[in-house]
Nucleic acid binder design. Structure first.
Lengths: 341, 341
DNA sequence: TTATAAAGGTTAAACGTTTTATCAAAGTGG
DNA sequence: CCACTTTGATAAAACGTTTAACCTTTATAA
């Protein structure tokens, strides 16, 4: 590999001059400039980032720790991070915790993530990353999951109860509010709800949003139509069966994710209930499956890519010491209207 | 951040000694060793990778260029790469081409990938990566997509007609062969086929496998039942409709991906044809959707994780100059039997 | 006793950059 | 003709490591 020294020798000039030309600073004559640039081109020179980083004490690298890379939402977030990073000259050092495969547990608690993340954190430190983004794929309180240090951290796609932590996520509350409100706007008041895990932050926030929509419209929600799922297809199916076999059954069901919404549609099909004729269904996530259901699912899409972009934007601000208006960024979801309402 | 110098000062010892202790080489007394280790621990010392790399001329980093990170198969491959890398002390520098978003084209040709990949390649060179994995998510000939250089490259999830290139992919031919053969084994001889793009390598190879299975069983395949799709759900639906409305219709349909298989099932549902009672359906990819169809789809699962692992395994071998038995690794797919056959 | 080896260190150069201080030569104004 | 500025360049230190070469001191062998 070519380096400054070789170019300097070839050009009969000092290393400093070559460095100056290649970073166009300092005062260098036009002649020499041309010559050096040509030689660098010939040698296909690429500056040694290690040396540069060492000297400048800046690695132009940010570390990304993701709890589970192969879960549907993580790649799109990373994509967002990546595109912004690229535009700003940063590279991404990727660490995958692989929680699901490692622990066998689908929703590991904070403590176990903490243990697994520690060594990765150390690697990132050693790599002199200028900042870290932690992507927790199951929204929950990750307060202090990474050890305190002078290096800035942004928590993404998860919550943190420590107000000093920087975090970026979507807004569960408003998403559920708007989904419910949309149904009410269509003149549907008999709305059932299938939640996710009862103790998940997402579930609780969305439940609040759901109820808020009713309050705003000054109508009552029926507690009998609120039922608990576990985020899986089958729970949607079973709860759907339960809800739709009641004497007074809802005219619409809001499921807290697309999988469960799919289950509801399956249940409706089996019971001979027409969607959207007799029953409207709304999902959450805008996951791939939603566009292949029959009817195609109307669903709340999460701003995954934007979450990624905002995360790194926030991180870079922090790195540069710029003023940060709010530690906690919550982005809005968007309803994608398809055929199930 | 702590460094060798600080530790050395604190311990009243030379930098060299600290280095020796921390990498346990050289001759150092037990006393000093303990002391240095304790201080390093106290300081939460992490060796500066930049400096180390610079000196050792080894970055312990490998670059991964992926054509589209947010496509269903890429994350799992990267997951595989990552897990192997971690176990062997390598880190992953991730570059995302984002072909779809950038070019608007879903299946960009080699030339355009080449253009987009060039700057990333340069960044990776500058980062002193020891090797590169190029993940092309649409299997095709990527010969020479990255510029020639002394740094080893493995092409993953794509083909290359240059026999000198290292590549890892799954085996389209045998996958299609076994899927077809499985159907034949079940006593079904009237098998329809919905292909992907006609000019794709995958399509051609799988078509060969399909025909081979018939030859081996010494039965005839019906050319009328072979029809072209475009990998999308709708094409499966439409071709399904066509096939299933013929006077002599097939008893089984093999679709070259799960999306199209989903379309076939939808078509069957509409025509009142029972799956698997009257029609068996097999898909390809074992994508998420396959487990949520009704009936659940029997499909060929791609060894994505293993592809990732084998890629980096091969790359590391190449980096270390070890003997490489075959430049071209083709892994077998596995039939996951569910309810549609 | 003396030569040799082993144990336990240290010194200093090197990796490829950046950057400050310095310098020579040429140009400019009075 | 002198003082001063400008232009174009260089030398050398520094970033945090590794490592070969060297240097003491003490133990061992002859």
């Amino acid at each position: 590999m070519a380096n400054l020294k070789k170019i300097a020798q070839k050009a009969n000039v000092s290393v400093a001059t070559v460095s100056n030309v290649l970073n166009n600073r300092g005062r260098v004559g036009e002649e020499t400039k041309k010559k050096i640039l040509r030689i660098a081109e010939d040698f296909n020179y690429a500056p040694n980032r290690m040396a540069k980083s060492l000297k400048m004490n800046k690695s132009q690298t940010i570390g990304v720790i993701v709890e589970d890379l192969s879960v549907f939402n993580a790649p799109e977030i990373i994509d967002g991070i990546n595109s912004f990073a690229e535009d700003h000259g940063y590279s991404i050092l990727l660490m995958n915790l692989r929680m699901k495969k490692k622990t066998g547990v689908q929703y590991p608690d904070t403590e176990i993530c903490k243990q697994e993340a520690a060594p990765m954190f150390k690697v990132l430190l050693a790599s002199q990353v200028e900042g870290i983004i932690y992507i927790g794929i199951h929204s929950r309180d990750v307060k202090g999951i990474l050890p305190d240090s002078s290096i800035p951290v942004v928590y993404t796609y998860c919550d943190t109860s420590n107000p000093k932590d920087l975090s970026v996520n979507y807004n569960d509350f408003s998403a559920a509010f708007y989904a419910t409100d949309y149904l009410i706007e269509q003149g549907i008041k008999d709305i059932g709800l299938i939640t996710g895990f009862k103790n998940s932050e997402s579930t609780m926030e969305r439940l609040k949003g759901f109820k808020k929509a009713f309050k705003e419209s000054e109508i009552e929600w029926n507690p009998e139509w609120i039922t608990n799922g576990d985020w899986e297809f089958n729970s949607g199916y079973h709860q759907g069966l339960v809800l739709l076999q009641k004497n007074n059954k809802p005219r619409a069901i809001l499921a807290m994710n697309d999988l469960m919404a799919g289950g509801v549609i399956k249940a409706a099909n089996e019971l001979g209930i027409n969607v959207p004729g007799d029953l409207s269904v709304i999902g959450f996530d805008n996951r791939e499956i939603s566009q292949y259901l029959t009817p195609k699912l109307t669903t709340m899409s999460l701003p995954l890519n934007e979450i990624g972009q905002q995360s790194i934007k926030l991180l870079i601000k922090k790195i540069r010491g710029e003023k940060i208006l709010s530690n906690k960024i919550r982005l809005n979801c968007k309803l994608v209207k398809r055929e199930s309402v």
